[in-house]
């Protein structure tokens, strides 16, 4: 029942199709087509607004997350201390001023050097640095150009760093002489530069850090960060009294050089901590 199935009388149709073929005016064509294009042109704005917004939020979120993940180990950095193997013996009640024996203990010499943290953003070691231990108090800083390199975590990290070779304080052979630990903490030193092989602070850092296989496929920054976190955690667990007890043990065992350095670190970490005369006698260097 359509035009094909049931042909109608086609005479009027043929006559109609012979009529002039009126068309809309060109101006109307242009108006309609312009409206159609305008309607399509609006569409991408609506379609892209939400995906672009979501993508921007996603990118920002990932960026902030990565940034926080990078900075978190730095915020936990603390100055390096002796091995956490010391017994937890707590000393109490102490005089406010140190005794002559304490005054005789060597003062720490702080390596005044640019740190990797200061070069890469917020100072990663700033929270661990004592407020009253500015680098100006430790003038005895000398470069160590002939230092033998030790392949350590710090060395691994130093290879990643683009900063120039840092200053490294000269260690003294004599255990009674002032030592030169890094005031910015040994962890900082271990993480950012080559450390002399005979430097106890570096060895302590290595002891505190978990063993790292150089052949491991893990990223170097991850290994370094893990070591720093471990060091920081061990330091956090140490009380001043236990630390002093550990120093006393070193004295008793004749490890005077290590004891001197550990005490210097202790003073940097706890500059106002009062020490009882009894402990002072234990930790004072032999005369």
């Amino acid at each position: 029942m359509n035009k094909k199935d049931e042909p109608l009388d086609d005479v009027p149709g043929a006559l109609y199709r012979a009529l002039p073929r009126d068309e809309p005016p060109p101006a109307m064509d242009a108006a309609v087509l312009a409206a159609a294009r305008r309607s399509v042109a609006k569409r991408p704005e609506r379609n892209w607004a939400i995906p672009v917004s979501l993508a921007a939020v996603l990118v920002l979120s990932v960026g902030v997350t990565l940034r926080v993940a990078e900075e978190r180990p730095d915020a936990q950095m603390k100055p390096l201390a002796p091995s956490p193997a010391a017994p937890a013996v707590v000393e109490s009640a102490a005089p406010q001023s140190p005794s002559p024996a304490a005054a005789a203990l060597p003062q720490a010499k702080v390596a005044q050097r640019p740190s990797a943290a200061s070069a890469s953003g917020p100072p990663m070691n700033e929270p661990a640095r004592p407020a009253n231990a500015p680098s100006a108090q430790e003038p005895n800083v000398s470069p160590a150009p002939e230092r033998k390199e030790e392949r350590t975590i710090g060395a691994l990290s130093a290879r990643e760093s683009t900063e120039p070779a840092p200053f490294v304080p000269s260690p003294r052979a004599d255990s009674s002489q002032p030592i030169a630990p890094a005031a910015a903490s040994a962890a900082d030193a271990a993480a950012t530069r080559n450390v002399p092989a005979d430097r106890p602070v570096a060895r302590q850092a290595l002891r505190a850090a978990p063993p790292v296989a150089a052949e491991s496929g893990a990223p170097m920054m991850s290994r370094s960060a893990a070591a720093e976190s471990s060091v920081a955690a061990s330091l956090e667990a140490r009380s001043p009294e236990a630390w002093l007890e550990r120093i006393a043990e070193m004295r008793a065992q004749g490890r005077h050089k290590e004891a001197d350095e550990s005490y210097a670190e202790f003073r940097l970490r706890f500059p106002g901590h009062a020490i009882t005369p009894e402990i002072l006698r234990k930790i004072a260097p032999p005369r």
Partner: peptide
């Protein structure tokens, strides 16, 4: 055209504009 192709609309318009115009006039 629903998907955003304005040229498709132009083709569609070209096909039907004459018939529709005459129908309405």
């Amino acid at each position: 055209y629903r998907g955003g192709d304005a040229e498709s609309f132009a083709a569609l318009y070209a096909r039907h504009k004459g018939g529709l115009f005459r129908f309405m006039v």
